[in-house]
Design a binder for these strands. Structure first.
Lengths: 229, 229
DNA sequence: ATTGTTAGTGTGTTTAGAACACTAAGTCAA
DNA sequence: TTGACTTAGTGTTCTAAACACACTAACAAT
């Protein structure tokens, strides 16, 4: 294949790290490759960027095609451009990470695809290409960002208990949190709206359900409020 | 030009936002374009990525060729991939930002290039392509990151006074800082090494010069210390 | 020697974070 | 129906960090 272009070109892909939360366990969706190179190995969902779609559009398309999820939180992570990262030829990959709520988008939606499966984020098998590096970067970003932007809610169902929220933060911050201090602080921010519902089908006292009030967050942000946990 | 490749390809460029600090004024280096498109307009230094260099290498090469600077702090910022961002054809650009110390790398080194000039970061002319957007993103990143990583030192000479450092933070945080509280906090971190030198050629009491102790920072980081200002 | 300019220094107050333990509500099974 | 089990929900005290604040010291220039 000879280069007919004025400037040398690299093939361009997007790869997505899709996180989900399953009972206090942080999960990542992986796809088992069918084609060479790395046939049979697990890899992040992703693929080539088309000439008439933006990078964000490509990432959403791949998430929809390969993982069966749509309308999720999505953010660009980093662009990986080592010369030898793909054994075939020069391929530059723009990595994204996405957050999905496993309670509403249940596991089966994605596992229907049969070659996709959820793994605990810190117990993944050996991955194709430099995907292990991408996953590490995504975990670092998620664990860092969850502190100063209210993105964690994207991993929870629309209505959740304060304990679920606390467990999420315990997973991300990798340390136990005091229940009373946590509730005082998070309720004090005024970002949670109490619903009139409570947890169902639990073998103990049922907890109140809350919603994240995104509109209120936008208002407060304009007035200089900054989220911090 | 027809596409002979299996996958559609975009041309790939890097663009660099090079920051410098001039007496408490944050500056950006721009290059006046000689070629179409946008001939005559100011733009960020940058250019096409070669097939056998990494993205970081491409960014450093462009900084060296177009801005005459080497061995500077450099970090990937974001990848811009809107379909119409270049009027000629699809071009995806990996943006970087870099920090240079204008006192040691004096202005002339770069202005020798004649088509390069420093502008105050918040008074730039109209820029080519989507470079205004890239600059905005770089400023936001710099102003955010300077709080929790000691990267500001990259903008200062090796030996600096506490007042210089304070002014740097006042520019980045966009608010005045109390002198006594600032000194207490920054010296309390133990990251500054007092030198035995003082400021020269000033028409008032000369201030002591300090160095940033990068080794000490690495040590402390391992022990869980986190920089915060 | 007087003026101008920046360097350098300490204390009290306020605020936010950290530590900590019991009662309430509900399910389940004997 | 009672007792055992599980998680929900709730305040106060202590501690550490942030904040507000004003004067003297050193040096150069005239």
């Amino acid at each position: 294949m000879q280069n007919i272009y004025k400037h040398p070109r690299a093939a361009l892909t997007v790869d997505c790290v899709l996180f989900g939360l399953d009972e206090g366990d942080l999960k990542v969706l992986l796809i088992q490759r069918k084609l060479k190179p790395f046939a049979g190995k697990w890899a992040l969902p992703g693929g080539f960027v088309r000439v008439n779609e933006t990078l964000d559009e490509a990432a959403r398309r791949e998430l929809s095609e390969e993982a069966g999820v749509r309308d999720v939180f999505l953010e660009q992570l980093y662009t990986f451009g080592d010369v030898e990262r793909d054994p075939r030829e020069r391929v530059v990959s723009v990595a994204y990470y996405a957050l999905v709520n496993l309670a509403d988008h249940p596991l089966k939606a994605a596992t229907d695809a049969s070659d996709a499966a959820w793994f605990s984020a810190d117990e993944v098998p050996s991955l194709a290409f430099d995907h292990a590096e991408i996953l590490t970067a995504a975990l670092r970003r998620l664990k860092g960002k969850v502190r100063y932007e209210p993105i964690g809610f994207e991993l929870l169902p629309e209505k959740f208990t304060l304990s679920q929220l606390q467990h999420l933060y315990e997973v991300c911050l990798e340390e136990p949190i005091d229940k009373r201090n946590f509730r005082k602080k998070i309720l004090g921010m005024g970002l949670l709206a109490e619903t009139d519902e409570i947890q169902q089908d639990v073998a103990h006292r049922a907890a109140r359900l809350y919603r994240f009030d995104a509109k209120r967050y936008e208002q407060l942000k304009k007035r200089g409020f900054s989220f911090w946990l």
